[in-house]
Every structure is written in structure tokens, then in C-alpha cells.
Simulated scan of single mutants.
Amino acid sequence: MGWSLFEWLLLWVLCRLLIAEEIGVCDTQSCIKDFSSRTRGLREGPNRPYCVHLKHYMKCVQEQSKACHGNILFHGIKISVETLMVNNRCEQILAQEGHDGVDGEEEDAYPVSPLPEDPCGYKGPGLNPAHCGLFGDPHLKIFNGTFMTCRVKGAWPMLSSSHLAIQVTNEAVAPDFKATATTKVTVLIKSNPTCGPAKTYEASSESLPKAFIDGTTFSGHDLSHPFANVTESESGRHVLIRIKSINTVVSIRKIGNYLSVAVTMPEEIIETMSDTMQLCINGCPISEQLSEAIH
């Protein structure tokens, strides 16, 4: 005898409860609030007290990996805190006395490091990263959290600021189809007189390079302290471009014959941008939307 609808529903509810108990609840906000509380009034930058708390912050976020596996905000925060660790040279600083900064060390136990402040490091708090992504045919998530599906055939500005510009090119997925997909991404990192020259990265449906178009992998005085750099996360499938001075990460993936691009950037940087036509800021025009925005 088959199960009734009620029995199937009861089984589904029990399974969901078991899964929730096993995986836990995604709670990155508690990590952010704890880090913000610990570092209030503390000098930011490459010094031991700040790095001790930054290491605690990273450990807290990493412990959320299982519960937050499918959460796009979690992955943005994880990349952001890892970038802060690199930009502030925390692993080197914490290794100077053989400590990893996660075993109960308190900031009062260490004097401020005599290492000079990195002139190209990010000067803002960077606690509230915002995320923009373009993927699929194509779906767009803008910095304010709104989702929409757009046509945007041809070349469109995804982001344009005094530090960084990103342009995407989309083509129809099939003849007579309104839906498009991204086939080219161009990232322009603008020059910084103090930190390094401009760099351009180009990805296409045929190629996802592991270097800028000039063959280099970083901009800056040396590879150990780059102003901007590109790294290959997965050969031929995923690259990350980091711009240290604005604590920003651009992620580009190749999925089949198409590309997806995601940007993680501090909210305080976004607030300084002009309100011009940028997909990440304003979304696509109404005439280009294939469905109503979903919040």
C-alpha cells in the first residue's frame, strides 16, 4: 500500500529538520559583529594586534563553510577576509614569534609592529562587502541585492570607477532567442602613481588566461606586495583578480562556452561611485529586462 500525501509531507519535514540540525544555520553576521567589536578603536593595518583579531575573524568565517556552502554572501566575505589577511601581511607578522593568532592571544600581549604601513593597502574598514554577479542567460545580482534577468546584448559597462572598470560582452545563446550569455570580460585596473601602472585583463569564451594581457601577473613594486594581481584558482576555469588599494576581488569563471563574473567590493567604495549606467549599480534598463526584478 502506498504512502499518503500526509505521510510524504511528514517525511519531508523530518528530513529537512535532520539536515538543518546536521548542517547548522549560516551565521556570518556573528563573525562580522565580533570582529567589529574586537577591533573598535584599534589601529588597522599590518600590526600584530590587528592581525590577531583578523585571524580570529577568518577562523570564525571558515567554521561556517559547511552551513554556508551555497550562500553567495558567505563566499564573498570569505574572499574579503582572506584578502585582508594577505594585504596586511598577517601570516608573516604572526609567524615572527611562532604564533598563529588563534589560540587565545589577546591584543594587549603584543606591541604594535614596527613594520611600516603599506601605502597601497586599503584604508577603510572593509567590514561590509557588497556583491555583484552576472551569470547564466544572464542573471544579474546588483550591489543592493536586487536580482533580475537581462538581455543586454553586446558590450555593457558592469562597473566604472576611478580605480576599476569592468566591461562584459554578451551574445545570443541561439538564433531568434532573447536570452544572451557572457562571452567576453574585460577588466581595467587603473594606474596608481604610488602603487603601480594600469593593467588590463581579458577573458573570452575560448580562453581564461592566468595573466594580464601584457603577460605579467601583478602590478606593483614586487610580487610579495602587489598593488593588483591575478591568480589562477582552477586551471582554465576560474581566475581571481585582486586590487589591494580598494580591497576588491573580481572572480571570473568559465562554464562551458560562457563566462560568469562576480565582484566583491566594500560598501564605502561603492557609495563614492557616480550614478551612471553601470550594471552593478543600477541594474539593466527596463527595456533590457526579460522579467521583473526579484528582491
Rank of each mutant, 00 (worst) to 15 (best):
H238G: 00
C68F: 04
S233K: 14
C132W: 15
H139V: 14
V102N: 09
E63N: 14
D34C: 12
I270K: 02
L10C: 13
N88A: 05
A198G: 11
Q92R: 15
T264Y: 01
I32Y: 07
G121Q: 07
V249K: 14
G196T: 09
N71C: 03
V61Y: 10
P138Q: 07
D100E: 04
I72V: 09
T194A: 05
L17V: 05
E7S: 15
P175K: 15
E82P: 12
I189D: 01
G76V: 00
G101C: 01
R48A: 08
Y201D: 01
V230D: 06
A95G: 09
N192R: 01
S287L: 00
A130T: 05
K59V: 13
E202Y: 00
D100S: 02
S274K: 07
S287T: 13
S160Q: 06
K66E: 10
P285W: 00
V102I: 10
F74L: 00
L54E: 10
L290S: 14
T28Q: 02
V249S: 08
A165C: 11
L208D: 10
D103Q: 07
T216A: 15
I77M: 03
Q278K: 03
I32L: 04
D103K: 08
A67E: 04
G124D: 09
P114M: 12
S245W: 01
D100M: 02
S207K: 13
P197D: 04
T276K: 10
P175G: 04
T194Q: 14
M265H: 03
E292K: 02
G121V: 02
A172K: 04
H131Q: 07
